[in-house]
């Protein structure tokens, strides 16, 4: 089943002489429960594509639908709500709120929607952290976690509201091989068990090999 579709996606930055065309009519379809790697050299537009798919940035032109919703027509409020319910993010850096515990970070997407930290949210957040192998780090201030642990907290948070899609921009780019493998194993496990779609940008062939689909971008379009 089709989860999201973009077609003729164009994104340019700047204007006139300084204009950079990053995406040049890109087409892409993602299905439910896909585990896909997004490959391409640095500067090829992977992050740009992910932020557009995540509704954090609007394309210059092109169509963008997800779950049957035309996202190019939605206003900021609607996009925020859509993002909260249907999309999870894992970034490379600065993922977590440093002044909050692991659990507080994980339940943020639910708490911000409900206006409070409910007991149910705490229970789910703790379960997710246990699943990420962080049973003894639940109440830890995130500032005291290792890089690998931080990324696993970020994955747990991305899953908190049971989104259909998780976008991960080089989630292991900052980690050693063992930690990176651990994070990828967890992602693969969630994808298999819950049917969550993952789109993971990376330029690590070994990470890409763990995904069932490889999408390569180059010159602003999907080349493979």
């Amino acid at each position: 089943m089709t989860l999201l579709q973009v077609s003729d996606l164009v994104k340019t930055f700047g204007a006139g002489e300084a204009e950079t065309r990053v995406l040049r009519g890109l087409n892409l379809t993602l299905k439910t429960a896909e585990l896909a790697a997004l490959l391409g050299p640095s500067g090829s537009g992977k992050s740009t594509l992910l932020t557009i798919l995540g509704t954090l940035m609007r394309p210059t032109s092109g169509a963008h639908t997800m779950l049957g919703v035309d996202l190019t027509r939605a206003d900021d409020r609607a996009l925020t709500e859509f993002r909260n319910r249907h999309i999870g993010f894992v970034f490379q850096f600065h993922n977590l709120l440093p002044d909050f515990t692991a659990l507080e970070n994980v339940i943020f997407p639910t708490a911000v929607r409900e206006g409070r930290e409910s007991a149910a949210a705490r229970t789910r957040g703790a379960e997710l952290l246990v699943r990420m192998g962080l049973k003894d780090r639940i109440q830890f201030p995130t500032a005291n976690l290792s890089g690998g642990q931080k990324q696993r907290v970020a994955v747990a948070r991305a899953l908190m509201n049971r989104p259909e899609l998780v976008l991960a921009d080089e989630p292991t780019g900052n980690l050693d091989r063992a930690s990176a493998g651990q994070v990828m194993d967890l992602i693969a496990e969630i994808n298999r068990d819950e049917g969550t779609t993952f789109l993971i940008s990376t330029h690590d062939e070994k990470i890409a090999a763990l995904c069932r689909r490889q999408i390569v971008v180059g010159d602003g379009v999907v080349t493979g």
Binding site: G54, L56, D76, R77, T80, E81, R83, N84, R85, F89, F91, F93, H94, N95, L96, L97, P98, F108, P109, V112, R113, R157, N161
Partner: peptide, 16 residues
């Protein structure tokens, strides 16, 4: 700033 960006990405509205 980065935290504000993260919160917005997680679904925090401007009002929040």
């Amino acid at each position: 700033r980065p935290e504000i960006g993260i919160m917005r990405a997680m679904g925090a509205g401007r009002g929040f």
